[in-house]
């Protein structure tokens, strides 16, 4: 746990943790509003977003990619709403139609354009490249105080840190509004809260978190972190404040354990190569959710009779 750790594992682990927390926080409200699959939809449409951004700008620079992905997420949300209203189709099916179509369009455009010179492909989009975000200039813990080495930190770390901070601030500022409109939309409307705007704002925040996290860790972690830690936290407590805290704990735990298992787990079994950290983080979050489903103190539905539970 010395210099090598700082150079190879510290930044990926931090990025994983920040990404997990940034996604888990809005995830709490998405779960309570029964919009959990918005995260799924957003992470699928990020692909066409970044492909189009690449076509327009011709580079894989971060900012256009982020803008493209955010734009695609917005387009998807508008399309889902339009299909729902115009075709009178239930939300799940409208979502399914929209994101699969956009994803297919993304794959098609990707195949049609020559992206062999840049690192842009579907598998990368799905799995991310957490392991490659290493801190080359670090020589040990002392580098944390060395401005030259700090300047060479991967850009992804700065971006996800900013987004994570933004999500935290937004959540603190709009806490009461979010809480009221999530639990009692009618009441929120009656006391004059902009309910529609709050809902859209939440989805937009989730999209920003998804896009920033996606950039670093791929879409699997994004979906898993939107849903698994908040869902597990939901089974542990009845208070929203505690649920959010627990979801952060679970998110951090998944990121750390997942990264460690992916990096060092195979060594324990005598294998040389690490496995996908993104996949492992998702798997660990699933195990946590599974444990919560089995042993969480508030796991069953209120008012369910004993026979039904058994």
């Amino acid at each position: 746990m010395g210099n090598e750790f700082v150079q190879f594992s510290l930044t990926p682990m931090l990025i994983g943790i920040l990404a997990a927390v940034a996604c888990a926080l809005p995830g709490n409200f998405l779960i309570l509003r029964r919009q959990a699959l918005i995260g799924d939809a957003i992470s699928h449409v990020v692909l066409p977003g970044i492909v189009v951004a690449f076509l327009v700008t011709g580079t894989v620079a971060a900012i256009p990619m982020l803008l493209g992905a955010a734009g695609a997420a917005l387009v998807a949300v508008v399309l889902i709403e339009a299909i729902k209203r115009l075709g009178r189709i239930e939300p799940g099916a409208a979502m399914g139609v929209t994101f699969t179509t956009l994803f297919a369009a993304g794959v098609l455009i990707l195949e049609q354009t020559d992206t062999s010179s840049v690192h842009l492909d579907v598998e990368h989009a799905l799995m991310g490249n957490l392991e490659s975000l290493i801190w080359f200039r670090a020589k040990g813990w002392g580098s944390l105080l060395d401005p030259v080495a700090l300047a060479a930190l991967p850009d992804e770390l700065g971006r996800i840190a900013v987004v994570c901070a933004l999500v935290v601030v937004l959540m603190i500022v709009f806490w009461r509004w979010l809480k009221i409109s999530t639990f009692d939309e009618g009441f929120a409307q009656a006391v004059g809260l902009p309910v529609t705007a709050i809902g859209l704002g939440l989805v937009a925040t989730a999209a920003v978190a998804a896009v920033a996290a996606f950039d670093a860790v791929g879409s699997i972690i994004v979906i898993a972190m939107f849903i698994c830690p908040p869902a597990a936290a939901r089974l542990v407590t009845n208070r929203l404040e505690h649920q959010v805290m627990w979801s952060v704990v679970f998110a951090v735990l998944s990121a750390v354990l997942g990264y460690v298992f992916a990096g060092y787990g195979p060594l324990w079994f005598g294998s040389q190569n690490a496995v996908s950290a993104a996949g492992m983080i998702a798997a660990v979050s699933g195990v946590i959710l599974g444990l919560a489903c089995l042993f969480g103190p508030h796991r069953s539905r209120v008012g369910v009779g004993r026979e039904e539970v058994l």
């Binding site: 029964r34 849903i227 969480g296 796991r299």
Partner: peptide, 12 residues
């Protein structure tokens, strides 16, 4: 079996 809604289960 749990209080989670079906969409959360699907996503998880």
């Amino acid at each position: 079996r749990t209080r989670l809604s079906e969409d959360a289960a699907i996503g998880a």
